[in-house]
Structures are given as C-alpha cells and as structure tokens.
Amino acid sequence: MNSKLGWLLALLLIAPITNVMAQAEAPYREFDPMEDYLPHVKGDLRLSGSYKHWKDPKNLDWRMAGNPDENWKLNWKFMDPPFNASVHGGHFALDRGETIFKELNVKGRFAACLGARKGNLKGLRAAYPMYRPELKQVAGLEEMIERCAAKAGRVLQNGSYDNSAVSLYIANQSVGMPIKINVTSAGPLQAAYERGRKLFHTRAGRFNLACSSCHTYQIGLHLRGTVVTSPYGDVAHYPVYRTRYQLQSLHLRFAECNLDTRTQPLLPGSRPYTDIEVFLTGLTNGYPVSVPSERD
C-alpha cells in the first residue's frame, strides 16, 4: 500500500518536471555559418577588405564618396565628421542634449549614475555598453540614460529624441577616442558578445533571413539601389541624424533593419538588441567615436 502511494507521489512529482523539460527544449531554428570575427575594426580586412579605404576618417577619397558604386567601400564614413563638416540636424540635437544633460546634472548625480568618474564624461561613450553591477546585467548608454533620468524624475524613453540627444551630447565628449570594450576576457560582456554573435546569425522573420545573411555574406553586392556594407566599425556614429527618423539610436536602427527584412521588431533596450549592440561594438573596437553624424 505504502509503496503504491510512493509510486503515485513520485509520478505526480515527475510529471510536471518532464513537462517543463519538454518546454525548455530549444525550438527548431536555422543559423548562418558562424564567421570567426575579430573583436576589432581591423578584422574587416579579413571580411570585406574595405577597412583600408575608411581607416583614416580625416583623409577619405572624395572621388569614391561621390560614386554610388564605390561609396560602400568607405562604409559611408564620408558622412561622419571631420570629413563631413556640414551643419545638419545632429548639431541641433547636440544643443538639445546639452540643455537636458545640464538640467539633470545640477548636483552631478546624473553623470555619476551613468558611470562618469568625478563627473568627467570624456571616454564614457567609448566604454559602453558595460556591465552595471547595480542592474546585474550589461546595459547600453541609452538604457542607462533612461534609468538615471527616471531617478531624477524625468521621462527619457529609450529611443526617444531627447534620450538620443543626451546620448549624442555624451558621445560628443569622446569624439576621436577609439571605442574600447573588452569582450575577450571571461565575464558578462563576453557572454553578451557571444549571444549577440549568435543572434547576428539567427534566421528569423517572414523571409527567413539573419543579419549575417547580407552583412557578412553579401557585402558589396546590390539589393536593388543599395549596396550591402560591412558590420565592422558601424556603431561609432550613433545616435545618428537621418532625414526620415530625425535622431536614430542604434536600437531603433535594429528595429528598422527588422522591419525591412519583415521580422517582428523588438523594443529598444530589449536583451537581444543589447546583445547585438555589444557584438557590433566589439567589431568597432579601435575606431574613433564620430558624432554628430548623418546618414540618408
């Protein structure tokens, strides 16, 4: 009798566990072959080879910039300062960002919350995304701006114009400084880099495409009027002024990429987008922060 009861109890206990195990099993997904990326901008020399044309942002070949068949080789860096000296919407956003930052940082708490040492913003942008112990997770600069502004009682939603304007102002304090995040030492940032790398190769959406389907394996080829560019060195100019989006943060760019490839977009600051940001920032290591910039 007792043994029967024991069996019954054991079955009752095991049933939900096996159910959970069945749910936890990863669904069938498809992946592009995982390219061996170098977490430094010069890794592009192994991928598309275009880096040699844009590694010196001051001295780009203006003839290539004006040629629609060649400008992809400059990775559109001719729209970044100092090569691009024109005044555009990014400069207005910079002024707006400075105003908001100074309003929030009267007592210096906002800068401290973002991780600035002694209130000095120099180099802060080049070190993001970073692991934030208080959140126990990796966070991008825009996510931290939203959180720290909320502490001061101001709503600056991730992806909003004002949030990106503050991010742009902070980035502007690091202009010319090479992006430097450590994704090779074991830790949360390296784990996020690896997750981002996997996501970059994960097929999704109505067309079953991954980021890498084009940006690793079709660089330099035409998709109608546009030419696919390298993923290396691409995060250095965000947030960026664009005519259609005004000021566009990197995560809003991911949402646009998703919509273009008919994949459900995610919210700015979501874990997958943050992981892809870490991956792409790793591929931009060594390239200078270039703001305020513009793109078509």
């Binding site: 997904r29 909003s160 004002d162 977009p265």
Partner: peptide
C-alpha cells in the same frame, strides 16, 4: 506590429501601426 516614430524635442517614443503583421513569424526575442 508597430513601428517607432521619433518626435523631435520629446522624451517619449511614439509607435505607429506597421503595414503588415510580422508577429506571425519567429523573431529574435
């Protein structure tokens, strides 16, 4: 599916309906 709309000089991000429903296919979430 919603698409973002950036509103100048605002701390809020607006969302507008996208022309297609993309929630039907696997995503990166």
């Amino acid at each position: 599916t919603q698409q973002p709309k950036v509103v100048v000089n605002s701390g809020l991000l607006e969302w507008q309906p996208f022309s297609r429903d993309l929630t039907l296919w696997p995503s990166l979430s």
